[in-house]
Design a protein around this nucleic acid. Structure first.
Length: 549
RNA sequence: CGGGACGUGGCGCAGCCUGGUAGCGCACUCGCUUUGGGAGCGAGGGGUCGCCAGUUCGAAUCUGGCCGUCCCGACCA
């Protein structure tokens, strides 16, 4: 089909709105793909919806290829279904009440609804099943941001797999993981599947798909040799080896007046920060005080601490610290402390300087196992300078957008909602479930973040709103028309800019809108009976006779 | 929820400090000229200055409250 720009709503802008900061935000608004209605709430214009639908169709095709079946499940969901799983209490869930006082939830994902339907699965003979739909999701985001990156309302593709056992789930999970890789590859989006936190979804394992992008909210770590990729929250990378002074046979007290920070301490003792340790007393949800211990140059990764403690926590107050250690913060250490000590793996080998639990004093030569008995855990946050745990290669740290997340839910939802089946041995068992999401708007944002230049968007072919953008300049309308028809007949989607405006304006809009190929018909090419075909990505242009395009 | 910034026509901005009847660029309408990277001339249209109160003869401008949007943090399938 040939779309005529003169008849379309194509609201391109010369300037981005002042509040736009992220590349996807600026360019999608300027290019006329999206318009904001409220914070985190956007309309897709006809142009933007073309892209959204292309993304949707690629996802649909790849899910069909693994045998998943498309549904359409409602947004309005009786609250009782969510009370059964306890998720009605999640703060970001939006609740509504109808005119008769009935309560509903506007879901952020559809585990409850699909598990409700899965009650109709009766026998292992019907398994496995994989169901999905595209539906609007709602989240009461406290802080929407970054254009399409963090939204209060957005379309998600969410799938749910139902298996009879863990092996079945593993297979379903891997099928989805493979489909996701193909989806992002087809869309021209660089994305990595990395281990992730399961958060409030629960379940036994989960993987994020992270697309490197400047305005992303996650930090992705990748190895230069391509054998490692992880989210910083769970990454276990190799820290720089410590520079330790000569070993001591026994502890040695040293006065360190006024040395309250690791920097002070290292300078005062003329040692490297890697030869020190850092004490982080925290209080668990149950009120227990635990001493976290890190190497001096490391920072605590809070998600890891939660995992290590098996509980939420908060930093201890100064009063609690004095009561437990008898010293001020800044002179705390594990030696002589009678509570639990959780030490980072980096402190397993070697001797470090630690606080002496006596204000203004430290201990040299502190050695785990000899001077204190810690439980070891991975607590440190990966940082620049760490090396790859597989090959020792250099690591790259970059921000990334979470475009997909896949979970092994096991039987969490099926057990709570009574979705059971009868197995081969006549036993009734809960379905073993997985759930798999992709945020379409985030995919669109990622594509723009990864593919743009100073002039506008450079859409990957598979999700471009149009395949070809024909610029019709005055005097060459006929040849432009012929070129458009020819492209159309060859199966390309064509945007024909037949508006009565100046060449510069048309070129600027073509760059902004970002179709992969631009075809210009104007006086220059007219004499040759030709058009100029330009590649949006490279800018390479060549003159081609109309009959040959 | 804490910190910061901003709110003046569709978009970008000035005016506010020092109160006096709202302006610029782009866009829009009409006419003429122009046409390979955001044209020129002429004539026009469009704004409760976020909202509410207060001070004042008079408020876009000063004061108070509220709302909205963006950024940082908290939070985050």
């Amino acid at each position: 089909m040939i779309a005529r720009a003169s008849q379309l709503f194509l609201p391109t802008l010369r300037n981005a709105p002042a509040e736009a900061e992220a590349a996807n935000h600026k360019l999608l608004v300027r290019g006329g793909f999206i318009r904001q209605v409220s914070a985190g709430i956007w309309s897709f214009t006809p142009l933007g919806w073309l892209v959204h639908r292309k993304i949707e169709q690629i996802i649909r095709e790849e899910l069909a290829a693994i045998g998943a079946q498309e549904w359409f499940a409602p947004v309005l969901t009786p609250v009782e279904l969510w009370q059964a799983t306890g998720r009605d209490k999640i703060p970001v869930i939006i609740h509504v009440t109808d005119g008769q006082g009935r309560e509903f939830v506007l879901p952020m994902t559809h585990e409850e609804t699909f598990t409700f339907h899965a009650r109709e699965l009766q026998s292992y003979r019907q398994l496995p099943q994989a169901w999905y739909h595209f539906q609007t999701k709602m989240r009461d985001e406290p802080r929407p941001k970054g254009g399409l990156i963090r939204l209060r309302e957005f379309v998600m593709k969410d799938s749910y797999s139902f298996d009879r056992d863990a092996d079945g789930l593993d297979a379903s999970f891997e099928r989805h993981r493979g489909a996701y890789k193909r989806i992002f590859e087809r869309m021209g989006i660089e994305a990595y599947d990395v281990e992730a936190e399961s958060g409030i979804m629960g379940g036994s394992a989960s993987f994020d798909f992270l697309a490197p992008a400047e305005s992303g909210e996650n930090t992705l770590i990748t190895c230069e040799n391509g054998d490692f990729a992880a989210d910083i929250e769970v990454a276990r990378t190799v820290p720089r080896p410590p520079e330790l002074p000569a070993r001591l046979d026994a502890l040695e007290e040293v006065e360190t007046p006024g040395a309250a920070t690791i920097d002070d301490l290292a300078r005062f003792l003329s040692i490297d920060a890697t030869a020190t340790s850092k004490a982080m007393p925290v209080v668990k949800d149950d009120g227990t005080l635990v001493l976290g211990l890190l190497r001096g140059d490391d920072r605590l990764e809070e998600m890891k601490m939660v995992d290590a403690l098996g509980s939420g926590y908060r930093p201890a107050t100064e009063d609690e610290i004095r009561a437990a250690f008898g010293a001020d913060p800044g002179s705390l250490g594990p030696v002589g402390y009678d509570g639990e000590v959780v030490a980072d793996e980096a402190l397993r080998e070697g001797q470090f300087v630690a606080g002496a639990n006596r204000t203004g004093w430290h201990l040299r030569g502190v050695e785990a196992g000899r001077d204190f008995q810690p439980r070891f855990a991975d607590l440190r946050q990966s940082k620049e300078g760490d090396t790859c745990p597989h090959c020792g290669g250099a690591l790259r740290f970059e921000t990334a957008i979470e475009v997909g997340h896949i979970f092994k839910l096991e039987t969490k939802y099926s057990a709570q909602l009574g979705a059971t089946f009868v197995d081969e041995d006549d036993a009734e068992r809960p379905l073993v479930m997985g759930s798999y999401g992709i945020g379409l708007a985030r995919v669109m944002a990622s594509a723009v973040e990864q593919h743009h230049d100073e002039h506008g968007i450079v859409w990957p072919e598979a999700i471009a709103p149009y395949d070809v953008h024909v610029v019709s300049l005055s005097g060459a309308e006929d040849i432009a028309q012929r070129a458009a028809v020819r492209m159309d007949e060859r199966g390309y989607s064509v945007l024909l800019d037949d508006r009565d405006s100046r060449p510069g304006e048309k070129f600027a809009d073509a760059d902004l809108i970002g179709a992969p190929v631009r075809v210009t018909a104007g006086k220059k090419s007219l004499d040759d009976g030709a058009v100029d075909v330009r590649d949006r990505a490279t800018g390479a242009e060549r003159r081609v006779p109309v009959e040959e395009i």
